[in-house]
Simulated scan of single mutants.
Amino acid sequence: MKKEDRQQFTLRITQANSTELIVILYEMLLCYLTDAQEALQEKEIPEGSASEDKDLFREAVRKARGCLNELMTSLDLKYEPAPELMRLYLFCIRRLALGEARRDSRFLEEIRRVIEPLAGAYREIAGQNSAGPVMNNSQTVYAGLTYGRNTLTENMADQGTNRGILA
C-alpha cells in the first residue's frame, strides 16, 4: 500500500461511522491482496532482491490476514447474517494461508471474488447509515486548491491534544 493510500485510509477512518469502517476494512483488504499479487507477479527478479519480494509478499499477506481478523472480531454472532459472514471470513483465511504457502495468486483471486461483492453491499448500506462518525473528537481536515500552481493541500483545524474517541 502506498503512503498516499495509507494517509487516505487514515483520514477516512477518522470521519467514518461504524458501517463505513467495515467498508474501509474491505477496501484495505483488497488493496493488500493487490499488493500480494503484484509481489508474486514480479518475474524478472534480480539475484539480491528475491528475498525482498518474498518479504513484500509475506507482509501484504500478513496485513490482509489482519484485516480479515478485524472483520471477524467485529461480528456480533447473535445477529444474522454474522454466522454466515464468519464462515466466509474463515474460508478467506484458509485460502490466504494456502496462497501464502504455495505462493499462488489464484487463491488470492478467490478471496477477492468473495470480498468484492460484500464490499459493494456494505457501501450501499453505509449510504443508509445516518449515524455520525465513530471518532467524535478528531481533527477536521479541509482540502482545497492553494495559491500555488494547481497544488492540493490539506489544512488541519483544531489541533488540540484532546482528540480521538469520546466515551
Rank of each mutant, 00 (worst) to 15 (best):
N17W: 01
F107K: 02
A119K: 15
M135W: 09
L30N: 11
E80P: 01
Y32K: 14
D76G: 02
Q7N: 13
V61C: 04
Q37M: 06
P133K: 06
R123E: 12
R62M: 13
N155C: 09
A39M: 01
R65Q: 13
E47I: 03
M72S: 15
E84F: 10
P81K: 00
T34P: 03
T153N: 13
T34Q: 14
Y26M: 07
L21M: 12
I22P: 05
K63P: 03
E116W: 08
G164S: 05
G164L: 01
L68F: 05
R103N: 03
R6F: 02
V23M: 06
L71V: 06
Q8A: 15
Y122P: 05
P133A: 14
T153V: 14
V61M: 02
R94I: 08
L68H: 08
I93Q: 15
K54P: 05
R103E: 04
M72P: 05
G66C: 07
G48Q: 12
Y89R: 03
I22M: 10
L90K: 13
G120A: 14
N136F: 04
V114N: 11
R113V: 10
K2I: 12
G127Y: 02
L11G: 10
Y79D: 07
A50V: 04
E38F: 03
E27S: 13
L71E: 07
E154N: 13
F57I: 00
R113I: 07
L40P: 01
A36S: 06
L33K: 07
E38K: 11
K78F: 00
I45D: 06
R106P: 01
S138R: 06
I93C: 12
L40W: 00
L75M: 01
I24H: 07
R106N: 05
V61D: 03
L98S: 09
N162C: 06
L90C: 08
L40T: 03
R163F: 07
R95I: 01
L77R: 02
Q7V: 02
E80L: 01
R6C: 06
A101R: 06
L152V: 14
G144N: 10
G164Q: 04
D35W: 04
A121F: 11
D53H: 14
G120M: 09
S51I: 02
R149S: 09
K78T: 06
G144E: 11
L68T: 07
L145G: 12
S74L: 04
E124F: 08
V114C: 10
K78Y: 00
R149A: 12
L98H: 05
L11K: 11
L75G: 06
D104Y: 00
G132D: 09
T19I: 03
F91R: 07
K63D: 08
K3Y: 15
L30S: 11
I13L: 09
R102Q: 05
D5L: 04
R6P: 04
A121M: 13
L88E: 10
V134K: 03
G132L: 01
A119Y: 07
M72E: 15
R12T: 12
I13Q: 10
S130Y: 13
A16I: 05
Q37K: 10
